[in-house]
Write a protein that binds this DNA or RNA. Structure first.
Lengths: 221, 221
DNA sequence: CACTACTTGACACTGAGTGCCATCGATAGC
DNA sequence: GCTATCGATGGCACTCAGTGTCAAGTAGTG
């Protein structure tokens, strides 16, 4: 039996080590830039061996991306918790907002997150891994959306694309996140981003949606 | 002065070498899988040195991704060529369709392309690079869209997100591309994917679009 | 104390990617 | 016809990411 809820002593020790490594990594990467830092540099600061680093993180990119990766699970669970009759644009907007509000409430934690976001968006290698993560979330969101609206995800492109539009909104928000932005400003960015995709999100969720009215189809009707 | 248009002899020789390397690479990668093939394997088949490979391709991923990368430029130029008053959903649909129809007209070339697409979508490392490329196209498309509709891309999230939606559609199309699909089937997939995002594409392009009607905003009006 | 499970560090190894230099072949100028 | 030059190539050595393996240390448990 575990001593407390589900975190054993060993578990907490592991998290401590991981956090130590992450702190050292983020500090170096944010100041010197991604390519100018080697794993040896990181473990030298953290006072551990190179091998230990790779026991905790799958790659150098992983340290950075995982810092924001927990967001993904939050988004999916938040979407699942939204009322079933809610419009997709509203449910997804609140789902995306969940981790953002979590970032924004403590200013120091928010600033740290913002710096990591900038590092990711400005470093091609990190950006690629970040998008890879997003795809996993997208699949989770798509499955949830398909269930909510009783759609077949293997034939209907709506769930995947709706989830993708939520990710586009997230990207747009993070892209415009400026230093010193408070929670109010982030909420404003979120509302604006979702205003763009909302028409598609809400038009497509309905099974009896009107197709074929589109002009100039590649396939003549 | 060049002997013919803009391709010198040396230029054509370079392209020939690149094609030889690409053929060897694609053949091996498609049969054995991405991780099971080393660059040494590739150059052994192509009969060249390891060093030469990296003079033509920036990375192992690059060989595969560049095979489809020329699509990007086509899409942007096609969008620029569409009539200025055309609805965004129509213009973008035809822009995306351009490289797809180019793929689909010769069955053998189409099948080769389809296999490469599957390899990319099924290999995480390749998928990440593929998305990295898409980001570049997205910026190009966004710039073109901003110009078409006289929007300021630094403040208005529409151009970037609209370009992103076009990429989502492209992803959905490629994801559903099955063996033996002819041009007609690809056109059908394209129409269906764009039917999903069209409402947002066409609602957002208009400067005087209605915002604030969205229910349950994060910011109370 | 002995046993077990887990973590760590050290070493060696593969493979990607880069810098450097010697060489070869084609072309231009004498 | 000879040579200087330029670009492409190959070979070599190097850095760095990432992995497998093994020995040692450090808990908890009987």
């Amino acid at each position: 039996m575990a001593t407390r809820s589900d975190t054993t002593l060993a578990e907490r020790k592991r998290q401590l080590v991981a956090e130590e490594l992450r702190n050292a990594a983020l500090m170096l990467l944010a100041t010197r830039g991604f390519d100018a830092v080697t794993v040896d540099d990181i473990v030298a600061i953290a006072g551990m061996s190179r091998r230990t680093f790779f026991r905790y993180f799958a790659s150098k990119e992983d340290v950075v991306v995982r810092f924001l990766a927990d967001m993904g699970a939050d988004v999916v669970t938040e979407l699942a918790a939204r009322p079933k009759n809610e419009a997709p644009s509203v449910a997804l907007r609140h789902a995306i907002w969940r981790p953002l509000s979590g970032c924004a409430d403590q200013p120091d934690h928010a600033e740290r997150s913002r710096i990591v976001v900038r590092l990711i968006l400005d470093t091609p290698a990190l950006h690629a891994r970040w998008l890879e993560r997003q795809i996993q979330w997208r699949s989770g969101l798509a499955a949830e959306l398909a269930a909510r609206h009783d759609l077949d995800p293997s034939t209907d492109p709506y769930p995947q694309m709706a989830a993708g539009m939520a990710m586009l909104a997230l990207d747009a928000i993070l892209q415009q996140w400026r230093p010193g932005d408070d929670e109010h400003r982030l909420a404003e960015l979120t509302d604006r981003a979702f205003a763009v995709v909302a028409p598609a999100l809400d038009a497509g969720a309905d099974k009896r949606r009107a197709v074929g009215r589109a002009p100039d189809l590649l396939l003549a009707p």
